[in-house]
Simulated scan of single mutants.
Amino acid sequence: MTASDHLTAQRTILATVYRTHVAPGSRYALVDFPDHANVGDSAIWLGELALLRQITGRDPCYVSTWHDFEIDAFRDACPDGILFLHGGGNLGDIWPHHQRFREHILATIRDRTVVQLPQSVHFRVLAQVDRFATLVADHPDFVLYVRDTRSLDFARKHLSCPSHLAPDSAYALGERSAGPPQCDLLMLMRTDDERQGYAMPSTTQAIVADWLEDDPDLPVGVDAIAREAQAVARVDRGLRLLAQGRVVVTDRLHGHILSDLLGIPHVVLDNEYGKIAKYLDAWSFPKEIVTKAATMEEALSLADGLLATR
């Protein structure tokens, strides 16, 4: 499979998934906008928006974050149509605000289909599953999409709802172009609650960064237009960062996905609960683009090998 074939396959599967729920002219809401600097969530949001617009020919009739959702405003703006929950990696107990919002939606929006767009599922404490499982079982029409087979197995074991495998929605952004690299090795390494805590060798000459800080000129505003502009600015920042390297090492899933879209060879380490390896195991990827490593030493050795061929 070539790199181009692989990217086309991911987009094709995503389009089929979305067309299961919407058609030309369909009304829909898209909620849980990622109101934070993490580039990956904005990439997912823009991919979701691109697919929904492409299929329906229209913008969402209602958009909100987890903290400013208003049920009356939602019903006024979107009296019918599916409610889509933004995908990502927050179904579980690591990022509780988003999980509580998802549970609130299931408890209060019961007169229409609610679709959870592709997610990774992880609960550190299994006892936390019961509340969510009860809400899922009680909801008349909830559909769950997950990004890897471990999440799918978990959902089919614990949750009484249709559960399906689908790629990450950021692949709907399509291939991107990168300018001339500025360094041999760019290392995008997590500094948040999902980090594994890899020790950085003191000898590395790589640029080491994370992408959790917004640019000072980020567009402001809380309407749908401003939020889309914020997501675009965040993704552009992430693409510029990754494009600095001839080769990338990362423990972020969207460090991998955006490097994939940019065509930059990269080595992936894993996050705290194995999210990246499970995603790679679920889908076919060209080996000349992405390689898995278990340790920092292995990652740097593989990166050196990639640099020697470029």
Rank of each mutant, 00 (worst) to 15 (best):
R195A: 07
I13C: 05
L85N: 05
Y28S: 09
I44H: 13
R252E: 09
V247D: 03
I264A: 02
R310F: 01
G197H: 05
K292Q: 15
G92D: 02
L242Y: 01
L242M: 04
A23T: 14
I94N: 01
S120K: 06
D72N: 09
S163V: 10
R150Q: 12
D223H: 08
L14T: 00
T2F: 12
F84Y: 14
V125Y: 11
A133V: 08
R53W: 03
G174H: 04
A282W: 11
L91E: 04
V143N: 11
L83G: 08
A277M: 03
M187H: 02
D193L: 03
D80H: 15
T56H: 02
Q196G: 02
F285N: 12
E194Y: 05
D93Y: 09
V232N: 10
H104V: 00
T250N: 09
D214I: 08
G174R: 04
F132H: 13
N38M: 10
A233S: 15
H86G: 07
A206D: 13
A226N: 11
F101R: 04
I71F: 09
R310C: 00
T113A: 14
L188H: 10
D35R: 12
D141S: 14
M296L: 13
P60L: 09
Y273M: 00
H266D: 09
G25A: 05
V146D: 01
V121Q: 03
Y279Q: 09
W95Y: 15
G81V: 12
T250Q: 08
V232F: 05
R27A: 14
D93N: 13
D193H: 03
A50K: 13
L241D: 05
T12V: 04
A155C: 15
R240M: 03
D270V: 03
D59L: 15
V268N: 13
H139W: 01
T8F: 02
D138M: 00
R110G: 01
P180E: 15
A199P: 07
E175W: 02
S26L: 05
I225E: 15
H86V: 08
V39H: 06
Q10D: 01
A199E: 15
H254P: 07
D5E: 15
A299E: 08
L306N: 03
P60G: 10
L242W: 01
S169F: 01
A243C: 01
C78D: 11
I105W: 11
L261N: 07
P162W: 03
A209W: 00
K287P: 13
F101T: 02
D260I: 01
D193C: 04
L165Y: 09
S202W: 06
A243K: 00
Q182F: 00
Y28P: 02
V146T: 10
Y28G: 08
V235C: 10
I109S: 05
R252L: 04
L144V: 07
A15E: 14
D215S: 14
D93L: 13
G92K: 10
A231M: 07
L7K: 09
T295K: 03
D184M: 06
A9E: 11
E213F: 07
D72R: 08
Q54W: 08
H97I: 14
D148A: 11
P181I: 04
R102N: 12
Q244D: 08
R190L: 00
D193E: 09
S64R: 12
D41S: 13
V222W: 09
